[in-house]
Structure formats: structure tokens, C-alpha cells
Amino acid sequence: MRVQSEQKRFQTPSYVADVFLDYFNQRVRVENYRGNIKQIMIVLDQLVDDHQFTKIIFHAKPEQWTQLLSFGFELEAVFKGYSNGSDQYAMAKYKTNDRRTSEHWVKEDDILLDVYQKGRDVKAKELPEEYTFRRAIEKDSTKLAELYNKVFDIYPTPMNEAHYVQKVIQTGSIFYIVECKGEIVSAASADVNRTYHNAELTDCATVPEHRKYGLMKKILQKLEEELKKEQIFCAFSIARSLSFGMNAVFYQLGFDYTGRLRKNCYIYDKLEDMNVWVKDLSDFNN
């Protein structure tokens, strides 16, 4: 089976760059770098030619993001506090008109407005007694994979494979689950970066017939508490722009919308736009 993604380090006397090659989503991403940006661009262009990538993502430092404009990049989102409290700017460049063009952009704007109009103060729903919450362990990997296989036809990472889920847990991601009558019906994770002290809240999934109780909102609150214990204060998430429910959840939890990543990854049945939501967990008024 072909590798879906891999990370490589490129370095010369003039630069160092850690580059994430995402074959499944046809994109390349730079997250950590220093040195000569112009030389890094040459490497990226070569990778695009070699692998037919259609999107380049460059996570730039605050003092350098405008430099990328001269290379044809545009600003898509700001990850506030991403790197030990310093912001990170998500710059993007597209290699095809199809990848750059979003057919649902205006609809996604309308969904965002609906989210704002609903407001942050939404009364929590009472849960039936059969729902129980807990932190997941490695033994839950098979049932978690079954959940993701049931909820998503296509997902950016192979979360429908038990061995992959187990590896994700082993490498430090925190999963919280909801069980009903012995079955996992909802789950989400915090992918913790202990170098830059941030965490992505991701892998949010709830079986359709259990979505009326607001389980995901409660799971994310529990993940926030776990992150605070580890003094991880930058929490962010990338939610489907077409999903009113998930965007409403993050807004209600005090996250701020900071941009949209155009045709960022395959989910459900197509390449989808993703909204970026960020929260400072050290701000107890948030």
C-alpha cells in the first residue's frame, strides 16, 4: 500500500526546512523552517513537479509572512499563539485553478453568519444516564476505528484502521470517548505538539442517531481540561466549513474564527474548505 504521507527534513548551509508531504490530499506543507526562504521555494517547486501536488501550504512566522506574498502566496488563516505563544500565518499557493476555486464559499460565509447569530450562550442539554465519558486507552483502538469507518466515507487520515489509531494514541494524542451500552458513539482527540505547546482538537465524530444531545461539545470541554493540566494553552481546530454544527460548537466554546483553508483536504466525498478556530486556554474569561 502506498504511503499516504511522510515528513522530510531538507537542509543546506543556507536553510533548514521540515516539509510534510501529503500524497493523499495532494499537498505539501512547511511547518518549521529557518534560513533562506527563496532557496526553500526552489525545493517546494521541485516537490510539486515530482509529485503533482496542487497546493502548497507555508506556515510563516509573523515577521516573514508578507515576504511570501512576493512568491505568489496568499494568507488563509492565522493560528494565534501557535508557537509557544507566537502566532503562525498559514500561507497558501495553488497550482491549478480547480484547486484554488471554491464552489461553496458564499454558502460557507452564510453558515458562519448563522453560527454568530445563534450566539455563544446556548443552554446545555441534559444527558440520559446511559452515556458515559472517559479518556480512551490503546485497547479502544479497534472500536474507535469502527466509529470513524461508520461516520466518514473518506477522511484525511486513516482513522478507520485500528493500528493507525493505536499509533496515534501511543505518540501522545489524547482521545476522549462517549460510550452508550458498551459501544463508542462519539469521540474526539487532542493532537498535542509538546515542542510548540499547542494542540489541535480533531477527529471529531458522532454516530448520527446520537447527535441530538450535544455530546461533542462536552467531549471538547473535557479535552480542554486535559490540555490545561499539561499547560498547553493554544488550542485550535480545523472544522468543515459546510458543517453548521461543528462550527457552532467551537464558537459556543469560546473559540475565535481566524480564517478558511480553501480545498484543504478530502473529507466525506470531496476536497473541502476548512474553517480555523483558535482559543487561548489561559484566558479564563474566554
Rank of each mutant, 00 (worst) to 15 (best):
S186W: 01
K218H: 10
Q170N: 12
I154V: 14
T195R: 13
P208I: 00
I169L: 14
T195V: 11
G172L: 00
T157I: 05
P156C: 03
D153F: 15
E230Q: 08
E230P: 04
E183F: 08
N160R: 04
R194I: 07
D153R: 10
E224R: 07
P156H: 03
H210I: 13
I219W: 07
N160P: 00
C204E: 00
D191N: 07
I177E: 07
F152I: 08
V192N: 08
Q221R: 14
E226S: 13
L223Y: 03
T202G: 03
T195M: 13
E230N: 03
A190N: 00
G182E: 06
F152S: 08
T202I: 01
H163I: 03
E226M: 13
I219H: 11
D153N: 10
N198D: 08
D203Y: 08
K181H: 11
L223V: 10
P158V: 15
A162T: 02
D153C: 11
L223E: 09
R211N: 06
A187G: 10
H210Q: 12
E225G: 03
T202F: 10
N193A: 03
G182S: 09
Q166F: 07
K218M: 10
K229H: 06
V192H: 07
M159Y: 12
L220R: 08
A190Q: 10
K217F: 08
V207C: 02
K218S: 13
I184D: 06
E209R: 08
E161W: 04
Y176V: 09
L227C: 00
E200N: 01
A190T: 10
I184Y: 07
A187M: 06
V192E: 12
N160M: 01
L227Q: 03
K228Y: 14
L220Y: 14
V192A: 01
V185A: 09
Q166G: 12
K228T: 13
V168H: 14
P156R: 01
T171S: 13
A188H: 14
I177F: 10
K217S: 06
F175N: 11
I154Q: 15
L215G: 04
K222S: 08
N160Q: 07
D203C: 12
L215M: 01
V178P: 06
K212C: 05
E183C: 04
Y176Q: 14
D153A: 13
I177M: 05
Y176A: 07
D153E: 15
Y196D: 00
C180M: 12
T171Y: 07
I177T: 05
H163A: 12
D191V: 02
I174W: 05
M216D: 06
L220A: 04
V165Q: 10
E226T: 08
K167P: 02
L201E: 05
P156K: 02
K217I: 02
